[in-house]
Simulated assay, not measured.
Amino acid sequence: MAACLVATILIGVMFPVMTDALRRIDPFTFTSLRYLIAGVALALLLLYREGPVAFRADGESLPIAWLLGSVGFCGFGSFVFLGQQLSGEQGALNASIMMATQPMMGLLVNALVRRSAPPLPSLVCVVISFTGVALVITRGDLRAALLEPQHYAASGLIVLGALCWVIYTFGSAYFTRWSALKYTTITTWLGLSTIVGVNVLLVVTRVVSAPTFAALRAVTPHLIYMGPIAGFVAILCWISGNRTLGPMNGVLFMDVVPVTTFVVSALAGVIPNKAQVLGAALTASALVLNNLYLRQRAQITK
């Protein structure tokens, strides 16, 4: 429980940290640097824990691992942080509440993969969850949001990024010969090839500017948090906690992410209004209610 709590608090702080970083550097360059730092730390730990043989494929598909790493790390980092940047000062709140909807997204992805509709109570929870998201994003003023097209692009990118992480998480179940640490490390490094490739292409085509030395120096404190802490430590705590508690219990801690982000953002001067607090409460309630329903259903099935 402590491991899951630490992980979700560290992830929750991540979004306000990124609000400041994204004023100084583009999300693609930052994502490349962040996962390079986290990747080095993961590789050293894997080498220490499992030895040099841990870097072998062991019969698993490296192309699929590359695809999942690209989706999970390049997709999540690029889409979520670009969406957060487009959302302005409200971006941290919007992105954090999207993270709490990932279990609901997972429910829909699982239903799609298995080609079976989720139970009606779970679908109701999905609707409640996304209603809460809508309240946070629109600040309770849906009409004004509909008249501002930039809301669609920013929110759509964050949703797409969150969905990328759900797909990456689901993909780990197919790598049964790899430990959780090995899956994370190998896919991080394979995904880095895509992250860096996209980053270089965007710089060469002048879609984004090459980072200046001043910009890199300015985001060094942010990288210290986002790489070793929010990347390396948070991932390890999340893996450890979920292995002990199980995903059904671990997923409840996703509610801590928006709560942490709301508190840190408020301390930084971005205070959520009543509609946004209500939206966060709705999303959290939907996650808990769906969890309780699935538990009860599993007991009846037994």
Score class of each variant (00 low, 15 high):
Ala2Ser: 10
Leu5Cys: 10
Ala7Pro: 13
Leu10Asn: 08
Ile25Met: 12
Asp26Val: 01
Pro27Arg: 00
Pro27Leu: 00
Thr31Phe: 00
Thr31Ala: 00
Ser32Lys: 03
Ser32Ile: 03
Tyr35Cys: 03
Leu36Gly: 14
Leu36Glu: 10
Ile37Trp: 12
Val40Pro: 14
Leu42Asp: 01
Leu47Ile: 11
Leu47Glu: 06
Tyr48Arg: 15
Gly51Glu: 12
Gly51Met: 13
Gly59Ala: 00
Gly59Trp: 02
Ile64Trp: 15
Trp66Met: 14
Ser70Val: 10
Ser70Gly: 11
Val71Glu: 00
Gly72Ile: 08
Phe73Gly: 02
Gly77Ala: 01
Gly77Arg: 05
Phe79Asp: 02
Val80Gln: 04
Gly83Met: 08
Gly83Gln: 09
Ser87Lys: 12
Leu93Trp: 12
Met98Val: 11
Met99Tyr: 12
Thr101Ile: 11
Met104Trp: 03
Gly106Ser: 11
Gly106Tyr: 09
Leu107Lys: 07
Ala111His: 10
Ala111Pro: 12
Leu112Gly: 14
Leu112Glu: 10
Arg115Ser: 15
Arg115Ile: 15
Arg115Phe: 15
Ser116Asn: 13
Pro118Arg: 03
Pro119Arg: 03
Pro119Met: 02
Leu120Val: 10
Pro121Gly: 01
Pro121Met: 01
Pro121Ile: 02
Pro121Trp: 02
Ser122Cys: 14
Ile128Leu: 14
Ser129Pro: 10
Ser129His: 07
Ser129Gln: 08
Gly132Pro: 14
Val133Gln: 02
Ile137Met: 07
Thr138Met: 05
Thr138Cys: 10
Arg139Val: 07
Arg139Asp: 13
Gly140Met: 04
Leu142Ala: 11
Ala145Glu: 11
Leu146Trp: 15
Leu146Ala: 15
Leu146Thr: 15
Glu148Leu: 13
His151Ser: 05
Ser155Asn: 14
Gly156Ile: 07
Ile158Thr: 06
Val159Leu: 12
Val166Phe: 02
Gly171Thr: 08
Tyr174Leu: 11
Trp178Tyr: 13
Tyr183Thr: 05
Thr184Asn: 01
Thr185Gly: 00
Gly191Ser: 04
Leu192Tyr: 06
Ile195Arg: 01
Val198Ile: 13
Leu201Gln: 08
Leu202His: 07
Arg206Leu: 08
Arg206Tyr: 06
Val207Gly: 03
Thr212Val: 00
Ala214Ile: 05
Leu216Trp: 04
Ala218Cys: 01
Val219Gln: 07
His222Asp: 05
Leu223Thr: 09
Phe232Lys: 06
Ala234Ile: 05
Leu236Trp: 06
Cys237Asp: 00
Ser240Asn: 08
Asn242Ser: 09
Arg243Lys: 13
Thr244Tyr: 09
Thr244Leu: 13
Leu245Asp: 11
Leu245Gly: 12
Gly246Asp: 10
Met248Asp: 11
Met248Glu: 11
Val257Tyr: 05
Pro258Arg: 02
Phe262Asp: 02
Val263Lys: 09
Ala266Phe: 07
Ile271Pro: 09
Lys274Leu: 13
Leu278Gln: 13
Leu278Cys: 14
Ala280Lys: 08
Ala280Leu: 11
Thr283Asn: 06
Ser285Pro: 12
Ala286Glu: 03
Leu294Thr: 15
Leu294Ser: 14
Arg295Cys: 01
Arg297Val: 03
Ala298Ile: 04
Ala298Ser: 10
Ala298Val: 04
Thr301Arg: 14
Lys302Glu: 09
